[in-house]
Design a protein around this nucleic acid. Sequence first.
DNA 1: CACTATTTTTTCGAGGCTCGAAAAAAAGAG
DNA 2: CTCTTTTTTTCGAGCCTCGAAAAAATAGTG
Lengths: 413, 413
Amino acid sequence: MSVGIRHDDLRRRNRAMVISAVRRASQPSRTEIAATTGLSHSTISTISSDLIAEGILAEAKGFEPAAMKRGRPQVALALEPRAASIVAVVLSLNSLSAAVIDYAGNTMAEDTRRLVTQRMPAEALVSECIAMIRRLIDGADTSAGPVLRIAIAVQGITDSGSRKLLWSPITRHDDIPFADRLEQEFGVPVTVENDCNMIAEALRWRDPLRYRDDFIAILLSHGIGMGLVIKGELFTGTQSSGAEFGHMIHRPDGALCRCGRRGCIEAYAGNYAIWRNARLGDENAEPLADLSDDDITALADAARDHDGPEREAFRKAGEAIGFGLGSMFALFDPAPLAFVGVGATAFDLMEPHVLSAIAKTAGGLHSKAISFDTEPNEVPLKREGAMMRALLHVDQEIFAAGPASRQPATDVA
Amino acid sequence: MSVGIRHDDLRRRNRAMVISAVRRASQPSRTEIAATTGLSHSTISTISSDLIAEGILAEAKGFEPAAMKRGRPQVALALEPRAASIVAVVLSLNSLSAAVIDYAGNTMAEDTRRLVTQRMPAEALVSECIAMIRRLIDGADTSAGPVLRIAIAVQGITDSGSRKLLWSPITRHDDIPFADRLEQEFGVPVTVENDCNMIAEALRWRDPLRYRDDFIAILLSHGIGMGLVIKGELFTGTQSSGAEFGHMIHRPDGALCRCGRRGCIEAYAGNYAIWRNARLGDENAEPLADLSDDDITALADAARDHDGPEREAFRKAGEAIGFGLGSMFALFDPAPLAFVGVGATAFDLMEPHVLSAIAKTAGGLHSKAISFDTEPNEVPLKREGAMMRALLHVDQEIFAAGPASRQPATDVA
DNA sequence: CACTATTTTTTCGAGGCTCGAAAAAAAGAG
DNA sequence: CTCTTTTTTTCGAGCCTCGAAAAAATAGTG
């Protein structure tokens, strides 16, 4: 059962609250923080001066555009960029990229390179990550704070503790212990997270009004991924990263999926499935290993131009997604949707069929709550999500705890 | 955003913790409570003596079987039955039942009667509830504490605030404001909750070892209902009671469902669907309004006796449930299952097909985590669930708050 | 039966935390 | 230059939890 609240947890939580308020709002004053957190002015004053003394926050200077009011002007608080830094890594099919980011979210250094992930041994994937991170850290500006956390966004299924990559389409190997290996190497907490979950996290920060408590991010690419936020929290499985929308069953014993099973949504709506339906007309044909973005845009152009197998393939894809969403909506009610990735550029071809399929399901009941949005470029989203994930961990788990529990002793300073 | 923690919240939470520990364990001592909550002995001592003084807890006497130890014997703490009472109501198709229950969970008075719910106006449903509760309260033993909460378990979809019955198979009417009407009548907080959610809540208390953080209760009756506990919390929709498993889509544009749509799981696995497949062999036939339990057991007996349409109907039902579960497991990983209701007596006929369908889905990966359990009688579970729901509200929201916020003033005692 | 060992529960003072009120600080308005 | 307004800090009061010590209550032991 959940444990009782100790006296020191109180401070910890309220510190976390203040840090979170500063990260969320752009440079709020103490008064604004008091308003959003519901804590008293005196408490905010005490906590924020502690945080400033510890080098976590700083008073933002050289900026008063919206002043022009009577009374003592508000002092804006900001995150101190040099308080820490984190590393955000994105590992996708045939591509690895990483960035060192300061505590305020500014990118200090970044790098990207192509790999043939599907042919590499598991250990090589890990060591490529390590090597890239090592280069970035060594080369980074020394003014940045110490690296306190590393987050890796990766296509595939991770365990619920975000420590291992259980399965991924980018490699033949299972159970790759990324977190353990990188922690051993860098001596810093590491998490491996599902890329679509990171996309959802990023959307929340990009557009907090639209994507707040309940929304769904769907990645339309070679496969179909999903990041799900329900009641303000990222929804994960009990044992894995979960939300494997692409492998919900659309038609029992239906089309052959890349995962070896039959009838998965992905087997109708993944890029390989659309291509297969359009070009081969055989939904049992062995899925292709990879497809270029151009292949998909070519199919979409053909489908827009004239009726034919291409248009029909996109219809089937939209239908599979729509019925799948309808089934999900039966479980937790409809929510706003964001379609991300190359496939999103062809979403105009699928949208009517998605809608008409949803209308045939229980989700059609409250379909007002559904809105669509598309974002073709998933890579920056994955990186932003991993970044936010890492920064929030630093906020909530390291800096909120206070100086006593972070360092052995502050006496001999 | 979530609000900061005030100083008095701390006491409130720790009081809640202690009450919860006493309700969970059977008559724990102060030492045991300290161990399970992680709070210090002195804190537990202070809080528990407050609670005893307020008449919420009591020292349990006349019981020391497991003593025989050296040292000062432990004093068992128990809930004081007269601290409060609650009313648990179960409203199902053609049946209404209610019970007055004391704070320790003992039934003080109960009543059940048959109604023709489908032909009654919405207002009549409400007033029948009111009348039955009024009779029970007036007739109840005066030694019971005041009624502090009423919980209604009802078949159908409620809003996420548990105030209205949005839709239900037991009536033609929508949006029945049970909570508002009953609160107005009795001046006590009221909630209306989905019956399957209450079944899940009850299972958790009946067998906390098996049904703890993650499990699924499926009600197999005329329709198919589900109560879902994920990560220790009842899973509800964002706008409704959610978890409408029966209306996830099994086969797009498939069999005609009672809800008017096509291909829902219920249209294959609900009692009416099994009967229709077995007797009419036409999955598009208009669903029957009601079926007796005997009709279903007769079908099951026939299916066990010889191959034929009955057996095939149960196969289809099992398959629909299995594929549906597989799709759900893609979202949040497999969990233990409890099948409840008349249909559970025929579960032996479905189980192999459920399993083989799950094996064809992503859920088949970790199928070790799946276990089945059946419980034919759903009525007591619904009542227990509603009871626990109401009692927990009293625990957490009324008694945890302390006497100051409950009464105007304790000065002139 | 008195005494000891042992375990549970209560008491008490110390240390933290938040809060409200009042004071201090820092501007614009007149 | 003084007054008004708003923000921020300071200070004492009131709670809360904790650890240590004391008190309470019982089973063993000779």
